[in-house]
Design a protein around this nucleic acid. Structure first.
Lengths: 334, 334
DNA sequence: TTGTAGGCGTTATCAA
DNA sequence: TTGATAACGCCTACAA
């Protein structure tokens, strides 16, 4: 199986290599006649240009790296990753880019990988699937001005490309819904407090309560761990009989909380975040927020590629709408 | 940020480009002195060879494609994919290969993708994460003799590279364990019957029963869908009071079955397969099989790369040991 | 042990 | 509208 090169095509079509190249890149400086002729030969020989040669001359690989930090054994994260990954890959492909998977348990190794990938010209840009505060890699990319996009809201809103939901707004809406149901005793169950997203969601919660002039509110936090959420909730509820609603920052926390509530035979409403498959899978129907994975993926890929290809944009970020769903019957298992 | 090339290094080190190249590739035909000198300059200039140029001369990209077929909304699949993906990526990296993520909802598109990736020389080999019977892509690869490995047991055992557990043996062992517990009324709850793996597991089950001269056995099947498994099991149990054990081919089926059993207040033991995170997550403790993801990943990457690099091997496959775990207390939720 | 030079498969510049 | 030809950055005979 000898590889067909541009030379073979040129010879068979009786034109120069340059002409074939022009046909491939859809150049306008070509007569229709020769174009057709060359295209025919390309079809016949089933010619595909060697990507290494193209990369070499264009100094662009048309590959995006996607960085996955460790998942911490959280099954919801897995949903998030596989979903986002496949959407990102699909939208990247639409613009002619492929996805290189970058993952490492070890942070130092991850950094070296990214560095090598960039320096060897293997990738044109990077997508970060989870935003860590003051991430070393992000700082590095900023420094060397390498194109990247982050799924999440960074500290400095005007720096770097990012795509995210409006977490404040979404949590505020969720909380408002609960207020409208007539509840007045709220508790906020947060995920890891070192994640920016936790703080944004807390802010939304706080605003909604303030607007409604509701005072009573407890705040507890937990890792993204349903088991811990279960224990934390249980303790809380045993100490406090008034609580009517627990607003959480993640379905996984909500699920843990619900288990505690059921066990204590209490009537407390819970809200989640992220519209996880696990929630659907367990047939739980608490209120949650659908963050529109597909749109997040779409927007991040496109803002990144625009940046790579020097397509001008007004803003360096995109806010994706989120939808509040569920909540008709709370915690009803099938 | 101008890119450093081999030329820059050569100039600064006062040697030819060839010498630098030799140092990079650790060639023996080099004096220690110049080697050290060149290495020093490489460090100083922070030189990394352009991968496109290397690919072009070596006609090898050092990239492996990993093919993910559609996940069908099964949360366990997600676990499997993210786990395997990250292990595969780690082991590939150890041998200097990167992972390109290949996924498409549309089968035709997937095929075109694979074809283009190969013809443009972007990938050196392919890993298939789920084996479909008579897969079009696999047939294509066989035809053009392109290196690939499959995680699963193919129909023709002597064709192509593959890595899998011994499913027959594992299911046979699981069934034997149940027999040793004194049960005599068995049912087999299978996943999709068009998957080879379902049939292998069924065979293991059948053998174990035959060996123990146990006759009574029912067989039902279901999609990889806990909800369907739940209904199927419920129906079965309502018609039949004797059943003591249900052997399933997947944790997700086991979980569905357990829910049905609990609902009916029956005492039926269930076994699963795959040691899913969901099982741990739900704190269920039915007997299941740990298929050793990491080893599966490791072996498949290495058998594939050996093939790519013409490293001779005795066999075209690797069987990975599986471990039976759990089962002390069945279905006990926390 | 080292250097020279041709080649890998394209693209892009400059002539024609 | 087309064709030569010099890059792109590296590797590898072949010579020295």
């Amino acid at each position: 199986m000898k590889k067909i090169t541009i030379k073979d095509v040129a010879k068979k079509a009786n034109v120069s290599e340059a002409t074939v190249s022009r046909v491939m890149s859809n150049s306008p400086l070509i007569s229709d006649k020769t174009k057709r002729k060359v295209l025919k030969v390309i079809k016949e020989l089933d010619y595909f240009p060697n990507s290494a040669a193209v990369s070499l001359t264009k100094s662009s690989s048309r590959i995006l790296g996607i960085v996955i930090e460790d998942q911490n054994d959280n099954p919801l994260q897995n949903d998030f990753f596989t979903e986002t990954l496949s959407y990102i890959s699909a939208y990247a492909l639409e613009r002619g880019y492929y996805i290189l998977y970058i993952h490492s348990k070890d942070n130092e190794e991850l950094h070296e990988n990214i560095e090598r990938l960039i320096k060897t010209n293997r990738i044109d840009g990077l997508v970060f699937l989870n935003l860590v505060e003051n991430d070393r890699n992000i700082n590095y990319l900023k420094e060397i001005k390498f194109p990247y996009v982050v799924l999440g809201t960074p500290k400095e809103l005007d720096k770097g490309l990012w795509v995210d939901n409006d977490n404040i707004k979404a949590t505020r809406e969720v909380t408002k819904r609960m207020i409208q149901k007539g509840y007045t005793n709220f508790t906020f169950l947060s995920g890891p407090t070192n994640l920016t997203v936790s703080n944004y969601r807390k802010e939304g919660y706080t605003i909604a309560l303030k607007e409604a002039k509701i005072k009573s509110m407890y705040q507890i936090s937990s890792d993204f761990d349903s088991y811990e959420a279960y224990h934390t909730t249980k303790e809380l509820l045993m100490q406090n009989n008034q609580i009517e609603v627990i607003i959480t920052t993640d379905d996984i926390l909500a699920i843990g909380a619900i288990r505690a509530i059921e066990e204590l035979g209490k009537k407390v409403e819970v809200t989640g975040f992220n519209n996880s498959k696990l929630r659907k899978y367990l047939k739980l129907n608490f209120t949650t927020v659908d963050i529109r994975y597909e749109e997040l993926a779409n927007k991040s890929v496109n803002i990144l590629i625009d940046n790579i290809e020097n397509v001008k944009r007004e803003k360096n970020f995109v806010i994706v709408q989120a939808d509040i769903i569920g909540g008709e019957k709370n915690g009803t298992k099938l």
